[in-house]
């Protein structure tokens, strides 16, 4: 028993579990070809279930998990490479991209906090929802600044990412958005990095544009949200 719990607290457990589950989830996703088997969302769900059933604390998982999380940093930097490759197409769409992100950022803030407010959400919850479409580090910074619950924002950011990755591109096609750059921009603005990961898999222009949207939406929201908070709250 002691040997078992010793092993649980080594990086081997968190890294190993994540890779095994993700590989499994990807196989199921490829075999079924169905968007409802999104490998990221299923991996997260399966690992949470296993940890809860096994009564294993998140901290034990995080001993290894944090090494995988670390790789996210250089991966975001690496988004410069496909952006550079697609620079001509992207520069030709400067205006639609910039205006699209600003409109998306405003709609995100207003619709998320507005809906929660109308349904009787407490002030803390309303504020924590506002930056939910922005990449985690920026979203946390904003929530701290306006006085929401940082943990709730972090959880909502991940959930937004999963939703956008699962059905973002399909939803866009459904409502008549056929332009590949516009789909990438929409998914990147609503679902930051997790949405971008999906876009990179399916489209050579939409992927980099989604990556650009992570940074742009982050900056626009970081600027607008505290301002709107001061003006309207």
């Amino acid at each position: 028993m002691t040997m078992g719990s010793d092993l649980l607290n080594t990086p081997l457990f968190g890294i190993g579990l994540t890779l095994v589950i993700f590989e499994l989830a990807q196989r199921i996703y490829r075999k079924t070809g169905s968007i409802w088997f999104n490998p990221v969302a299923w991996s997260i769900g399966l690992i949470i279930t296993l940890l809860m059933v096994g009564d294993i604390p998140y901290d034990a998982y995080a001993v290894g998990g944090k090494y995988i999380l670390f790789l996210l940093g250089p991966t975001v930097v690496a988004l410069a490479v496909p952006l550079y490759q697609r620079r001509t197409e992207i520069l030709a769409r400067k205006k639609p991209i910039l205006i699209g992100v600003v409109v998306g950022a405003v709609v995100s803030i207003v619709s998320a906090s507005g809906t929660a407010w109308l349904l009787g959400g407490s002030k803390n919850v309303v504020l924590s929802l506002a930056p939910k479409s922005v990449t985690t580090p920026i979203a946390i910074g904003i929530t701290e600044q306006i006085g929401g619950i940082v943990e709730l924002t972090a959880a909502l950011v991940v959930m937004s990412g999963c939703l956008g990755a699962i059905c973002g591109p399909e939803f866009c096609r459904l409502i008549g958005i056929k332009n590949n750059a516009a789909v990438g921009l929409a998914v990147g603005t609503a679902a930051h990095g997790i949405g971008t990961a999906r876009m990179l898999e399916i489209d050579r222009l939409g992927g980099p544009v989604a990556g650009l949207a992570i940074g742009l939406n982050g900056m626009v929201t970081a600027f607008l949200l505290p301002l709107m908070f001061i003006l309207f709250w």
Binding site: L19, Y58, G65, T75, T196, A197
Partner: peptide, 18 residues
Amino acid sequence: LLSHMALFFIPAGVGVML
């Protein structure tokens, strides 16, 4: 790195359980 980007989000996602 980019072709494995989705994988790197899993640990943060598992954090939702807290």
